[in-house]
Design a binder for these strands. Structure first.
Lengths: 242, 242
DNA sequence: GAGTGGTCTAGACCACTAC
DNA sequence: TAGTGGTCTAGACCACTCC
């Protein structure tokens, strides 16, 4: 079983073994290097690197090179209140969030249903993107009924965390009431929002938060997160065992 | 913006538009067809089909052809008791499960911790694979302490559902106590178990069930499910809104 | 400008499936 | 056996990033 007939898988395995332990962002051998080192054509060299990319071991950037990938665990559970900054910092990377836009719109049907409000109810719509180091890894829409906070735009441009703004400005305590997580190949507009050209799988996280344990719905969000950069882990039930 | 420079993406878009509404399993144009129809080389034709495969729109089988893919929603939530047969049948496909082996082993550390039992406690280990039509889509290990059911092998070979066997033979009522869901590119042995050669993303679902609402742990499982065949959806919290 | 990865051609041989 | 997709070579041009 040692002699496999598929050249690029052998090359990929050999390279993969050399990658373990290297810090994320480290530059690895390029297609040309592999061509010379293993005496293969460019197709085989390329296939080997693409295999490593499929394994989420490396990230390839046109014009720049191939680098060791970092994949961060993003844990979602009932008790935990997830924070982009905490999660990303804890993994040793630099988090960043940018507000792309805040406006007031009438709630569309699906979002209104989630917030248990009539469609058309005025709400702030917050568009944000989040980064891991300098990689755009997440983009999300968040809705907050105007009734909850009359003013959101100014506060959000100053603060990083919507959760914090809601607590301090609106005096509410958002608690995760409902969350749905899945994975899809997103439509072109979402891919564009994540600055992705290729079709790749992306997490879809939808949620709704209430004030306190069972109060009024105060917030609702839909976010897409790159699956190659984040490993979403969803936990149901008591986390008594490991 | 109409004239894109990347040929294979145009071809993929055009083919994708022609796929909508076709029943799963329908044969679609092969690489050779595309080569002739769009007057491109095989590399471009191949790239187009691979793009459709990345979008999970088609499934390619060496030697056989390219076919419209079927992706089934598999919903996991606290209240729901998921059943392979129910889920797959509801999607209009033919479910099948095969017991690959039943034996009694001492619980390994990680599984023992999940079941809150001492490591080495004797338990039945059940290895199963499940199919959607004739596609091997899931493989799983399930552990049941011998104390819960002295005999499992005979019963499982006759019945499809472990849940049913536990209810009828062991007189327990398994309730989902803890579940963790994520997505990974699995190690080679799991890929082999799913009869996959390429490295593809696969769901990992781990769970533990108790007897009744808060009784003794009765079952614990780890399963891998092909992400191209199943869209796992995890729901946390009350499913009050759509 | 040098070097990277992305696209593409025109071939070739092979593994596999279906008939 | 015919036809499919999988691997691979040896080229080519291009888009992009970095210096």
């Amino acid at each position: 079983m040692v002699g496999r007939v598929i050249r690029y898988l052998d090359i990929a395995d050999e390279l993969a073994a050399e990658l373990v332990g290297l810090p994320p962002g480290t530059r690895v051998a390029g297609e040309h290097d592999i061509t010379r080192r293993f005496d293969v054509g460019r197709a085989a060299a390329r296939a080997a690197l693409q295999e490593l990319e499929r394994r989420l071991l490396v990230r390839r950037v046109q014009g720049a090179g191939t680098f060791v990938n970092r994949r961060i665990d993003y844990v979602i559970s009932q008790d935990r209140r997830p924070s982009w900054h905490e999660t990303v910092s804890a993994a040793g990377a630099r988090p960043r969030s940018v507000v792309r836009g805040v406006d007031v719109v009438g709630l569309p049907d699906d979002i209104a249903a989630r917030l248990q409000l009539p469609a058309g109810t005025p709400a702030h719509r917050l568009q944000r993107v989040s980064y891991i180091d300098d990689l755009l890894a997440s983009c999300s829409h968040e809705w907050v009924p105007v009734a909850t906070v009359p003013e959101l735009g100014a506060a959000m441009h100053a603060a990083e965390s919507l959760d914090l703004v809601l607590r301090q400005v609106a005096r509410v305590e958002p608690v995760r009431a409902w969350t749905r997580v899945s994975l899809d190949v997103p439509p072109p507009d979402v891919l564009a929002g994540l600055e992705l050209e290729a079709s790749v799988p992306v997490w879809l996280v939808e949620s709704m938060s209430r004030d306190g344990a069972a109060g009024a719905p105060v917030m609702c969000s839909s976010g897409w997160m790159r699956a190659d950069a984040l490993r979403v882990v969803v936990e149901l039930g008591s986390s008594s065992a490991t």
